[in-house]
């Protein structure tokens, strides 16, 4: 199978890298193949060759956009890496709140919304203890499919049990009436939570149109899929959007590459963040 589809997979891997910077190589071609097969099924095509023909020769934009969408990894859960959330609240947000500052956060790869909603739950809990504390969350993602789900705030019974404590489920979700044969019911995030988050489509590799600056940027488990050059580009852009001394939060396995003059790695008891350093010098040549 892989031999037959080899050149086709290479074509799509190149296309995906060029458009959104995600790297698929021979080690991960099996993942790409399985995702492309889901595209073949979605558009009711007869084969991978037909898919290739539609995109390479006929330049079908609808199919191309869908492929780029499924190429992103949307795996997530509520409070994924719970220690990150605890550390953010304790070490970064509480000190800002104590100074009477409002907090602006960017969830830069929010996927289906679990990350910004988890943050909002924690921040609302803090707000209940400290009434003058205010916050807002900007949540963006490349995948329109993921974003539509995030905006709806509707999750299955299995999804609301991944990482989410039952007390938060009862407090921040409304149960929807059962509509189909799927086990359990759907659950929708309530308006109290939704009103603190604005969702929008955003490609980290295109021109950045975000306004204002942030106290915290979360960009978790995105850079691992990018090439070194794209990683550098994204980290450099994020540096511009962070307030001085504020924090960038990456995935547990991710780091700042060669940008030690832009960010300082700060190890807290249970998590590591990257503090913005005020001066940025050119390091492109070091890559």
């Amino acid at each position: 199978m892989e031999d037959l589809n080899g050149p086709i997979l290479k074509f799509f891997a190149d296309l995906i890298f060029k458009e959104i910077g995600i790297v698929y190589n021979e080690m991960t071609f099996y993942q790409l193949e399985s995702r492309l097969e889901s595209v073949v099924a979605h558009f009711e095509l007869d084969s991978m060759e037909t898919l290739h023909h539609k995109v390479a020769k006929l330049r079908d934009q609808k199919i191309t956009k869908y492929i780029l969408d499924v190429a992103t990894n949307n795996e997530t859960s509520f409070f994924r890496d719970a220690k990150v959330f605890k550390t953010l609240i304790r070490e970064v947000i509480k000190p800002l709140a104590a100074e009477g500052k409002s907090v602006r956060i960017w969830s830069a790869a929010c996927s289906t919304g679990q990350e910004p909603y988890s943050l909002a739950m924690e921040l609302l809990t803090l707000q209940k203890k400290q009434k003058d504390f205010d916050f807002s969350i900007v949540a963006t993602d490349y995948s329109q499919r993921a974003l539509d789900k995030a905006k709806s705030g509707i999750y299955t019974q299995l999804e609301v049990q991944r990482g989410l404590g039952s007390a938060n489920l009862v407090k921040y979700f409304n149960q929807k009436p059962k509509v189909d044969d799927r086990p359990g019911t759907l659950w929708e995030v309530n308006d109290e939570l939704k009103k603190h988050i604005s969702f929008s489509h955003f490609n980290l590799l295109e021109a950045w149109s975000i306004t204002g600056s942030f106290d915290i940027i979360l960009c978790r488990n995105v850079l691992i899929y990018q090439s070194l050059e794209k990683r550098y580009e994204i980290l450099k852009n994020m540096h511009r959007y962070l307030k001085d001394d504020s924090y960038l939060v990456l995935g547990c396995a991710e780091s700042i590459s060669n940008l030690s003059d832009c960010y300082e790695s700060t190890q807290f008891e249970e998590a590591r963040f990257f503090r913005k350093l005020a001066t940025q010098t050119k390091r492109v040549s070091n890559l």
Partner: peptide
């Protein structure tokens, strides 16, 4: 039992967490 009222009741009576079947 997967109704929000059941979950609230169990938490009120002292359950620490609540899993709805089926689960993984």
């Amino acid at each position: 039992k997967n109704n929000v009222k059941d979950i609230s009741e169990a938490l009120t009576f002292g359950a620490d967490e609540y899993i709805m079947k089926p689960f993984t």
